[in-house]
Structure formats: C-alpha cells, structure tokens
Design a protein around this nucleic acid. Structure first.
Lengths: 236, 236
DNA sequence: TATTTTTTGTGTAAACTTGACACTATGGGT
DNA sequence: ACCCATAGTGTCAAGTTTACACAAAAAATA
C-alpha cells in the first residue's frame, strides 16, 4: 500500500489482513559436472517427509534479505553468500494450513565449503534436472530461480561464487555449460573469457585431471570492477 | 517458509510474526514523447499530500496479482493490463507507522484509454525523468521497475501495450527511445522491427503529423507468437 | 627409455550482425 | 507551381560470432 486514497480508510492499516511471510531459498551448487540444488526432507506436517526448499518465516525485526541470510547460514554454515531475490509467490492456497506468502531467493554457494552436517536436516544435493518433486509451489520457484540465474549469469560475472577460489578453465566452462544446459566450443569459450579480463592466471597448476595439468585461475574483483563499465556480457 | 526443520517449531506458524503486505504499482504510460508514470497525492497520514505510487493492501482471499489488478482497475478504470512483478521491499522501517512489506508491480497502459477522473484521486502523469520525490521507498521502486521494463522490452514485444492499437513507426521508435532514454537511427530501427515480423501494416495512414502521412501498423499477436520460438531480441 | 594415453592449449577464416550514413518521395498548404 | 515538413528506403564497413583441428605436455606403462 502506502499510496493513500479514498479506498484506504485510515492508517489503521487493516490489521485483519496481515499474512505470514515466508522466505524460501533455492541454493545452487556445482560439483564439476551438474548444477545442483540443496533440498531438505520436511520435518513436520503438512507434507512431512517430502522434499522441500529450505525456508523459514520473516521475523518482525528483519528484512527479507536478513531472513534469507539467516536461513542460509543455518542450513549451510555459510555467511556472505551471493543471493538475489527471485519473486514473491502468493497463491491463496499454496500452503494448505494457513495463508502464507513466500518470497524466493536464490543463492550461489561453493559446494566444497558447505560443511553442513547434512544429516542434521536430512539435506541433500540434487542435480537440477533430477530433483524430486517438491512440496507446494517449490518446483515453480526453482524454475523461476533458474531462469533468473541464467539471465544474471549472462550479464554479470557471478558464476565464480559457485566455484572454489582457484579453478581451471575447464571447470569454468563446465559450470557455464551446466547453467545453460548446453555445450560450448572450448576455444571460443576461452577466448571470450579472456577477452573479459576479469581473471588472474596463477602460476600453479591443477594436476588432478590430466597428466599435463592445467593452469588455475582466480576471479579478480578489481579487474572485474574496472571492466564493469565496459559491461560484462556472456552469451556462450 | 514451508521447509520444515528443527528450527521451525510446529505448524502454528508463529502468528505473532504476521505482517501487512502491500502492493504498489508503477504505472507506465507514453504520450508520444516521454515515458510517464502515474502518481497520486497521498490522501492520509503519514506523508499526507506527498506524491506516491498507487497501491493498496493484499486481502486475505486474493493473490498479489489479483491485488495489483484490483488497484489498477480502481485507479485507471482499465482491465486486462500488462503487468509484471518487480520486487518485494521489506526494510523494517520503510513505513513509519507499521511494519509493512510491499511488493511492487509495474504496469503498461495506453495513456489515451486511461479515462480516469484524475481529480478523484489527485492523480497525475509525470515524465519519469521529471517526477517529484516520492514517499517511503517508492523512488527506489520506480528505479527497479524501470530497469525491469528495459530488460523486458529488449527481449519481449511488450512495448505495444503503451501505444494505441494503431500506431506509426515513428511513434514506436519514439517509445523505444523513451524507454531507453537514447536515440536510434530511423533506418536501422525500422529494419529491425520489420525483421521481427510481428506487425501488420495497415492501408490507413495517420495524417496528423505530416502532409505525406505515415502508414499505421498494428501489433499482430499471432505473428508474434509464431516468431516467439525464433526468439525476440531488440537491442536498438 | 620409448610409446601410449589423456587432457591442455592455441588461431584463422567464413558467416552473420550491427552500425553508420543521405537522398528521394509525397501531398497539403500557400 | 512551388514550398516544406516528414516519410520512406539500401549499402557498405566494422565488429562479432561461430565453426573447426592439431600440436604440446607429462605421467603411466611396456
């Protein structure tokens, strides 16, 4: 509201129309092969035992961002996570127990750092393409989040949040391929990434995947910022 | 929420954390020259008399979309308006009277059809670039909406919602120029639009702006749908 | 120590897309 | 008949995107 008019009676603000506001998080991770999401087995009714996004309720003294941050911390042990609001879902009966409106956020985390005791919450990583059906409208939330991630990753250098600090070109390419569920040509990919000038090439090599070894790179926030005006634009 | 865990106690769903959910609408219009937004003078405290977006509260039995539609109808008299959710704003003190979370929608309307008695609500159209400061976080909402509109208009043929049913190429170009606050080359623009193959050229001419007259076009939803798979992509 | 194997790393040419650019056509008003 | 304002039209250069193939490295094995 906030835009007064003759319809809005007063500033009592109609207390009877208050609703519960939830936050649900689509936590994306990447395991060198697939784009994954973190799901948990719901621990209470309704839909107990079904798979669901992680979530919680907005508290009186916090913003939606605060709530999402709190929830992410509690499930992954991680702070300082890249996060973006996706959409707010408000179907009247989306939650059968009580009217609940939910704002979805997606988050990108480096799957290796996510140290959480999965057992504590029966949490599990699922490939996006192989995830089970989720409760309520959570499948729809995932679809929206994925669309958003794709758009965002095409125009901002956010992919790096899904990788370890040091990564190979191969890993980076696999990541982008996973995000868009497609294949890129190796040479074109590398050329494009190099042209962006947002990476530092390290002296170190990663020897785990080949006999030759492949150079490691690091995302360079400084360079990236410098390039920012010139505008990032990855389309594959 | 909806994702159960040991933190969420039960399905009492913490009634004490309910909040008021508002909907605020950024109503865009176009007057052949500038991109405009419809603002109203707020009729009650706090901030009575200041300019504000149109808005209202979410009711128990409606979705956010329903609420936005209802609000748009009440202020513009129009149904069937193109609308898109922008973002949900939740700063704790955004509304000084009471904790209120607000979801912003932007809407595109044909300014000519908007027949509302402006006086009824002290509503006024303002050029986006010349709008007064708005209450609360409404300026921020407008900025977000504008960004969204630009992105959307670059990838989907939504501009037509801002124009009369029949329009000239000149008008269409002016519209796109207004949306991006930039200038396009006439020939390149027309070529690009023609290449999209989503317009019908009518036999009629508009004689109001020149002696020669200029042909009128109509947006063709059928053609547009057919082209849709081939993907729309306007970048100027 | 030569050979095999696997993955890394590198450049060019064709196709396509974008962007810059200027003149003629039209028709009502004078 | 002429004037004038706006409509309408095409080409070429530059830049971008895509397709494509082979040599280098180094560890493992014979």
């Amino acid at each position: 509201m906030e835009s007064g008019n003759e319809h809005a009676t007063t500033y009592q603000y109609h207390a009877e129309d208050k609703v519960l506001l939830a936050v649900d998080c689509i936590i994306f991770g990447f395991d060198q092969e697939d784009l994954k999401i973190l799901l948990i087995k719901r621990g209470f009714e309704p839909e107990k035992g079904k798979w669901s996004l992680v979530g919680g309720f907005l508290k009186k003294e916090e913003t939606l961002e605060d709530a999402a941050t709190r929830i992410l911390k509690s499930y992954t042990g991680l702070d300082d996570i890249y996060m973006e609001q996706v959409d707010t879902f408000s179907e009247v009966n989306r939650d059968p127990v009580e009217r609940t409106v939910s704002t979805a956020y997606y988050a990108l985390i480096n799957i290796k750092e996510h140290s959480i005791s999965n057992k504590q919450f029966s949490a599990n990583w699922f490939s996006v393409s192989k995830a089970p059906h989720l409760i309520f409208d959570h499948d729809k939330m995932v679809q929206h989040a994925l669309r958003r991630l794709r758009n965002r990753a095409a125009t901002e250098p956010i992919g790096f949040d899904l990788l370890p600090e040091k990564f190979t070109m191969r890993q980076l390419q696999k990541l982008y391929e996973a995000i868009w569920d497609t294949q890129f040509d190796k040479r074109n990919f590398i050329n494009k990434i190099h042209a962006m000038n947002i990476l530092d090439k390290l002296a170190e090599k990663d020897m785990t995947t080949s006999r030759k070894g492949s150079f490691l790179y690091k995302f360079d926030a400084e360079k990236s910022k410098a390039q920012n005006d010139k505008s990032f634009d990855f389309k594959g």
